[in-house]
Write a protein that binds this DNA or RNA. Structure first.
Length: 483
RNA sequence: GACCCUAUCGUCUAGUGGUUAGGACACCGCCCUUUCACGGCAGUAGCAGGGGUUCGACUCCCCUUAGGGUCGCCA
């Protein structure tokens, strides 16, 4: 089968027709047959993470692609937690995944309704935590044993693997004919139940996909060659395997595998650095997929419309933090003011600034001057911290450069002018500064730089006149008193 | 060792036999500007190598090379 096969296209078209018929049929009150037809055809995808304590950026993209495909086709997005490794899986680890998905806005139609494995869930195919599905696995093992497809070996249960090459039809990669490796030729059978009674990944993954009626398995390419095992398992159960789509991996900038500790590997780092979730989602879409027509930044609704599996690229992508930051900046610039201030305030509090000591209007005005200037909220502490500190920390190197005796004398003159100002507002401050500069026979620049440094401690920051107004006369005069 | 996937500027990508190989990030220059950012204009930079097929290959086939993945009583 070729990429974007005829089978798939026809199948997809049928679903579309069914969907539109469904609407009319329901409106006329006789859509029963169509509904069951729809039920069979409806796309069901799943994201099946293992709670390891962090959500890998590649995992996040896998979740996103699944979510996009579900939304694009009008299908169902299932979340299943693969917590079979009791030693490793903790409540906190599960929290991290659910929190990450919620942060990204990837809502699931079926799956856990709480973070508790034994807690409630939504959907008809639960439980959605593998730790709660032991009985189902037992039944399936027995089924295989009864069929003579599984047998006990040294306390474990092994599956009788097909000795012949298996062709994996993949929506992204095309047909993949998988031969046995040299080791597999020695013993192609593999363990499905450990000697301690716990089922292993390949087995539970297939059983759950089968029981949950998953129609499309969209996952990382690292699973591609193992898919032969999964197909053999499905066949052993007497059912057709789902359609597969193996998406390329996200690598480090140097092309190496992205592991836990690498920059940007954990979704948490984007939250910590103050990315906008919509920026992360947009960036992730651009890795391994393209909206074409030279488009880079586009709203989610648009992506949902355009996204499809056959167009997913076949080669791995490298993670580019610069481009991520660029998109971050774009989204922060266009964010509505209230949300910008809200997220900005959160970031500053996280960075240790006691915003509550300041009047709400002051905080609001201060944050507003940062809008359109920063790329990520994590920059706010360094960018706008001067608003919320009693002491201004000035870089000694910059001080030496800007605070020359000449500059100090000029600033002193400016300070006197500011002191006399009837109204301490941006427009007046600007007039006063320019007038002072004129009196001194210099341009505004040489006066602006030391003033900014004295008041903010940095060479770059929000609009000077506005920041002075917000800071207020007392603080400004105090900070301009350079020694 | 075996098996599998992949290969367009530094990076993400458009491109499906005939293009001056397009865009974005990054970088560089200029303009704008109180700083920074934004914006505007311009620029540097790419089809991994070798064989075929063809009138003609970035595009199709093979080989090499390189990168990635898998072969677990981890997921």
């Amino acid at each position: 089968m070729q990429k974007g096969s005829i089978t798939n296209r026809v199948w997809y078209k049928i679903r579309l027709i069914a969907a539109s018929d469904h609407k009319t049929a329901c409106n006329s009150g006789s859509g029963k047959a169509i509904v069951s037809f729809l039920f069979i055809m409806n796309v069901r995808v799943r994201f099946a993470p293992s709670p390891t304590g962090f959500l890998h950026i590649g995992g996040a993209r896998t979740a996103l692609f699944n979510w996009l495909y579900a939304r694009h086709t009008g299908g169902t997005f299932v979340l299943r937690i693969e917590d079979t490794d009791a030693a490793r899986n903790t409540q906190e680890a599960t929290d991290v995944i659910l929190h990450g998905l919620r942060w990204l806005g990837l809502d699931w139609d079926e799956g856990p309704a709480s973070n508790n494995p034994a807690g409630p869930s939504k959907g008809d195919y639960g439980p959605y935590f593998q730790s709660q599905r032991g009985e189902m696995y037992k039944k399936r093992v027995q089924e295989l044993k009864d069929k003579g497809m599984a047998y006990e070996s040294e306390g474990a249960v092994k599956f009788k693997m097909d000795r012949n090459p298996i062709v994996i039809p993949d929506l992204v990669v095309g047909d993949v004919r998988r031969e046995l490796t040299d080791r597999e030729q020695v013993d192609p059978d593999f363990v499905i139940i450990r000697s301690d009674g716990q089922p292993v990944f390949h087995f539970v993954n297939v059983v759950d996909d089968l029981d949950m009626r998953i129609t499309h398995v969209i996952r990382g390419e690292d699973h591609l060659t193992n898919t032969a095992k999964h197909i053999a398992l499905f066949r052993a159960f007497g059912v057709e395997p789902p359609k597969y789509a193996h998406i390329p991996l996200i690598l480090n900038p140097d092309g190496s595998k992205m592991s836990k500790r690498d920059t940007g590997a954990s979704l948490q780092s984007y939250m910590d650095d103050g990315s906008a979730p919509e920026a992360v989602v947009n960036y992730l879409c651009l890795l391994g997929w393209s909206p074409k027509e030279n488009r880079e930044k586009l709203p989610l609704e648009e992506i949902v419309k355009l996204f499809d599996l056959p167009q997913v690229l076949r080669h791995n992508a490298r993670f580019d933090l610069d481009k991520m930051k660029w998109l971050d900046g774009e989204y922060l610039r266009e964010m509505n003011d209230d949300r910008f201030r809200e997220l900005g305030a959160q970031a500053l509090r996280r960075a240790g600034f006691a915003l509550d000591k300041y009047p709400a209007d002051y905080v609001k005005a201060a944050l507003t001057t940062c809008k359109g200037k920063i790329k990520r909220f994590g920059e706010l502490g360094a960018y706008a911290g001067f608003y919320f500190s009693d002491e201004v920390k000035i870089d000694p190197a910059l001080a030496e450069k800007e605070f020359t005796d000449e500059a100090k004398a000029r600033v002193k003159k400016l300070r006197a002018a500011f002191e006399q100002l009837p109204q301490f507002v941006a427009a007046e401050l600007e007039k006063a500064l320019k007038a002072t500069a004129a009196e001194l026979g210099i341009k505004a620049g040489p006066l602006v730089h030391p003033t900014r440094l004295a008041c903010t401690g940095a060479a770059a920051g929000p609009s000077l006149y506005h920041l002075l107004e917000i800071l207020g006369r007392d603080k400004v005069l105090q900070r301009l008193d350079i020694h």
